[in-house]
């Protein structure tokens, strides 16, 4: 017998746990965007050392499962004397991992910008920092908007991995409720729709941003 009642009774708790999902994926994506831009600048830099460093960074964070990265952060940070709450460690790790993917997304977008865009800025006399922040990055962000939205949606779903460091977000909360109520189907179905709702909103906002960015 399918019990809607179970869903309705537990929905508030489930929704409350969604704030961790949102916090980790949202802040993780924001950090990923900032770190990703920096890593990307390294990847396209003239300096061979910077390019090498960026390549190693991307290889590591893209090549090691996020789950392992989270566990490493959880066990490694206290060992080197960094005592931060699990939530902070989780957000940082997710951000660093996302940066690897985002830097590659941005690098691809930068390659799509005609060489003349930077040349015009050089000819006008803009300093390198302004060429990046005023000319190249805004265009790269616009070009990569669909991929970035994709990345954020992946992060929302990947954030379920932070349960391994003891954070109770949507997935972990569903598991607890399911084992307490013996109603796994109802609860997991509710969780599925909750994830879906979040990601539909993100996709919608992404569409709007794309239109806004279009001149």
């Amino acid at each position: 017998m399918f019990s809607f009642e179970t869903i309705i009774d537990n929905l508030p708790v489930l929704i409350a746990s969604a704030r961790y999902t949102l916090l980790i994926s949202g802040l993780g994506c924001l950090l990923g965007l900032i770190f990703g831009a920096v890593v990307c600048m390294g990847a396209v830099s003239r300096s061979r050392a910077a390019r090498r460093a960026a390549a190693i960074y991307v290889s590591f964070f893209r090549g090691v499962p996020l789950l392992i990265q989270l566990l490493l952060a959880f066990y490694l940070l206290p060992l080197v004397g960094v005592n931060v709450p699990a939530l902070v460690a989780a957000i940082l790790t997710v951000g660093l991992c996302a940066a690897a993917y985002i830097s590659e997304i941005l690098r691809g977008a930068l390659n799509a910008i005609p060489r003349g865009q930077a040349e015009a800025a050089i000819a006008v006399g803009l300093p390198p920092r302004d060429i990046w922040t005023r000319i190249l990055l805004p265009q790269a962000l616009k070009i990569s908007m669909p991929s970035l939205v994709n990345e954020l949606i992946l992060l929302v779903k990947a954030s379920s991995l932070v349960t391994v460091v003891g954070i109770v977000e949507i997935t972990r909360m569903s598991q607890s409720i399911a084992s307490a109520t013996y109603r796994p189907l109802e609860i997991y179905l509710a969780a599925a729709f909750l994830y879906l709702a979040i990601n539909l909103v993100i996709a919608g906002v992404g569409r709007t941003l794309e239109r806004r960015f279009a001149p």
């Binding site: 005609p114 015009a120 000819a123 006008v124 006399g125 805004p138 265009q139």
Partner: peptide
Amino acid sequence: EMRRDIGMVFQQFNLWPH
């Protein structure tokens, strides 16, 4: 500083589209 005195116009215009 020297380039400030030198204006340039390109074949493809190279205006900033955003």
